[in-house]
């Protein structure tokens, strides 16, 4: 289980990374490597070149920025989990980051890597989706901010162009009420199903992990809560529009049931 050979280039700046990515269509960005390297060891992923952005200065930070909190893409899960700004102003992100993998994984894995990997089973993407986060991407022609709702396009696919680098994640302050329910077999496992609920604008936003090809919003639940439904009846709509996987961790049928239980519990916790 050794990766197939590849070229390696370390980018000193975002601009250099963009230029390197542009030079090779099969190049991949290496941040912490904790999504990419396991796939490369299985030779499922065989990039021709890795563009290591891990040393780019100033992409690891968490700071208040007006009504938002800006998180540098290279901020490690460990640092996200322990960032006081997040713990106070957007605790669900800190909490969810602390649930990813295990301590060693959190010492290497980055928030930008998790988002750019676009894994529907990842913990953070659905949290960020529920928060209506913004993703700042830099490419050859400049910088743009992509809304989370339009970011995750398909399985392991995102709105990032091949020569774009994710540089920052922007989340709103969200202290009104929240819940993060990760249902897993073992502590270190990916979620069988994950649910994040955040109070926003008098309603609630609900993100779902591992319920389809991408992280999802439980739109039906949000509507029901907006319409005054109690948690139990709102949660009954939790699997609307989902296409959960059928795998060794759970059948699609089980996940449909599970998501309703978790959403109900999440709503009860987030909406006191």
């Amino acid at each position: 289980m050794i990766p197939a050979p590849f070229d390696y280039a370390r980018a000193g700046s975002v601009e250099e990374a963009i230029s390197l990515l542009g030079s090779d269509p099969d190049a991949k960005v290496l941040a912490g490597g904790h999504s990419l390297l396991p796939a490369m060891r299985l030779r499922i992923a065989r990039p021709s070149m890795l563009v290591d952005i891990g040393r780019i200065a100033d992409l690891s930070y968490v700071r208040e920025d007006g009504d938002r909190i800006a998180i540098g893409a290279l901020t490690r899960h460990h640092d996200v989990a322990n960032a006081e700004v997040l713990q106070q102003l957007c605790p669900i992100v800190a909490h969810a980051a602390g649930q990813i993998g295990d301590p060693q994984v959190r010492h290497m894995g980055t928030i930008g890597g998790s988002v750019a990997h676009g894994d529907p089973a990842g913990d953070l993407p659905s949290v960020l989706l529920a928060l209506d986060a913004g993703f700042v991407a830099q490419g050859p022609t400049g910088t743009r901010t992509v809304a989370a709702t339009g970011f995750f396009t398909s399985l392991f696919e995102t709105a990032l162009a091949p020569d774009e680098v994710l540089t920052e994640i922007r989340v709103p302050k969200a202290t009104a009420g929240w819940s993060f329910m990760k249902f897993q077999r073992r502590a270190q496992d990916w979620a069988v199903v994950g649910v994040s609920a955040v109070r926003a604008n008098g309603g609630v936003h609900v993100g779902l992990t591992n319920m389809g090809l991408t992280p999802l919003r439980a739109v039906g639940v949000e509507e029901a809560v907006g319409g005054g439904a109690d948690p139990a009846s709102a949660a009954a709509r939790a699997d609307e529009g989902t296409a959960p996987p059928d795998d060794a961790f759970g059948s699609a049928e089980y996940r449909r049931q599970l998501v309703k239980v978790l959403v109900r519990r999440a709503l009860e916790e987030a909406l006191p």
Partner: peptide
């Protein structure tokens, strides 16, 4: 006795 098996 996985969660799914117990649930079923």
């Amino acid at each position: 006795a996985s969660p799914e098996r117990v649930w079923r």
